[in-house]
Computed example of a mutant assay.
Amino acid sequence: MVDDKKVNQVVDPGKGIAGAEDGPAWELPFLLLSGFRALIDRLHGELAAQGHPDARPAHGFALQAIGPDGATASELGRRLGVSKQAAGKTADRLAALGYVTTAADPADARRKVVRLTPHGLDLLNRSAAVFAALRAEWARQAGPGRVQDMETTLRALVPASDRYRLDAAGWLGG
Score class of each variant (00 low, 15 high):
Pro13Met: 05
Asp22Met: 14
Pro13Leu: 12
Phe131Tyr: 14
Lys112Arg: 15
Leu31Pro: 15
Ile40Asn: 09
Ala109His: 08
Trp171Ile: 14
Val11Ser: 01
Gln64Ile: 12
Ala168His: 12
Arg163Phe: 00
Arg111Trp: 00
Ala128Glu: 11
Lys5Arg: 13
Asp4Tyr: 14
Ala156Glu: 13
Gln141Ala: 06
Asp162Phe: 07
Ala169Asp: 11
Met1Asn: 11
Asp22Trp: 13
Arg79Val: 12
Leu80Arg: 11
Asn125Glu: 10
Phe61Leu: 07
Gly170Met: 06
Ser34Lys: 07
Phe30Asn: 09
Gly81Cys: 09
Gly98Cys: 03
Ala65Ile: 04
Ser83Met: 05
Ala38Ser: 08
Gly16Pro: 01
Gly19Tyr: 02
Val100Phe: 02
Lys84Cys: 10
Gly14Ser: 03
Arg163Leu: 07
Leu94Trp: 00
Trp138Asp: 12
Ala132Arg: 00
Lys89Trp: 11
Lys89Arg: 15
Phe30Thr: 10
Ala87Glu: 06
Glu46Asp: 01
Gln64Arg: 15
Trp26Tyr: 14
Ser34Leu: 14
Leu116Asn: 07
Ile17Trp: 00
Thr117Ala: 08
His44Gln: 04
Lys89Val: 11
Gly67Ser: 09
Val147Gln: 09
Ala103Val: 04
Leu134Asp: 07
Leu63Tyr: 00
Arg146Gln: 09
His52Asp: 03
Pro29Tyr: 14
Gly81Met: 06
Ala95Cys: 00
Ala109Tyr: 05
Arg115His: 04
Asp149Ile: 06
Ile66Ser: 01
Leu97Gln: 02
Leu157His: 13
Arg78His: 13
Ser161Pro: 02
Val82Gly: 10
Lys6Ile: 10
Arg78Tyr: 12
